[in-house]
Write a protein that binds this DNA or RNA. Sequence first.
DNA 1: TATTGTTATACTCTATAACTATA
DNA 2: TATAGTTATAGAGTATAACAATA
Lengths: 157, 157
Amino acid sequence: MADESTGVSALDQRIGFLLSQLGAHVADGFKNRLAPLGIQPRATAVLLSLAAADGQSQRELSERLGLHRNVMVSLIDALESEGLVERRTHPEDRRAFAVSLTDKARGLLPDLDRVGRELEDDVTAPLSAEERAALLRALQRLSAAAGLIPGVHPGLA
Amino acid sequence: MADESTGVSALDQRIGFLLSQLGAHVADGFKNRLAPLGIQPRATAVLLSLAAADGQSQRELSERLGLHRNVMVSLIDALESEGLVERRTHPEDRRAFAVSLTDKARGLLPDLDRVGRELEDDVTAPLSAEERAALLRALQRLSAAAGLIPGVHPGLA
DNA sequence: TATTGTTATACTCTATAACTATA
DNA sequence: TATAGTTATAGAGTATAACAATA
């Protein structure tokens, strides 16, 4: 396993390295496939979070996605100028906005889902259905054991 | 699988998302474990590349690691000021340097290897030895099929 | 004429703090 | 007094182009 001259294991024998390498590759692929839709990964995270719970405040979105609230301002600014979200008056707190998806954004959700599915199909193409299912279960267990919040990407921050 | 109200699959059911999520987590963990050694992931990549082939020029290192040559200048500057590499005269090209590991850097290699092993053990703790081996093989196949160069991390760039 | 290493420049990102209006 | 959103500022990081020495 270890190179005789250096005593250092090859990185491609390391699960940690492979996870990180493949993870970065997948993240790049996702970003590239998103580009034609004119949307970025962070914006996607906001849209999906709002799809699950519309009308969240910017603070709620920031906390859930692990971003600083200052960053959320320009993110929502961009989404609003693209007509994908609206800042509505918050029903319970006049300091806050209730950020809400527009119809245009709802029309985009299936595309976002499709991009994710196509990417997954491409990346896992070498695996049989059984191997794919086993990999999914293994990754879910590792993610849970690492204390990662389901659906929250640490690289967004 | 898909949420009834939105038609969007949960991200934690997606192999692509999980790979990216875990990959970012592992990369963070690696960076954190490296910090006490006073070294960064990029610098680690340079040291490991030199451990495999000492005396490479900055251009060779740049190409192999997927970094721009301008970035390599400050990277080597930092490593040199820390006493981990030396710029020697290149035996075949007087424009170039032969970047060489110092004894101090060679003494650091086992630590770098240990960090990678400890991280892998932590991340894969929930898996049996058999499951771990199966995961390693699956990730190796996916990495190869994706056209990734063994041992080269796309996120370095 | 092309290439290696270097430097300068502008551009983007990020982090911190401070401000306003509400609570 | 604390919080939601915003803005300003400085620092880090990145990309581009240009330069001197050498091929």
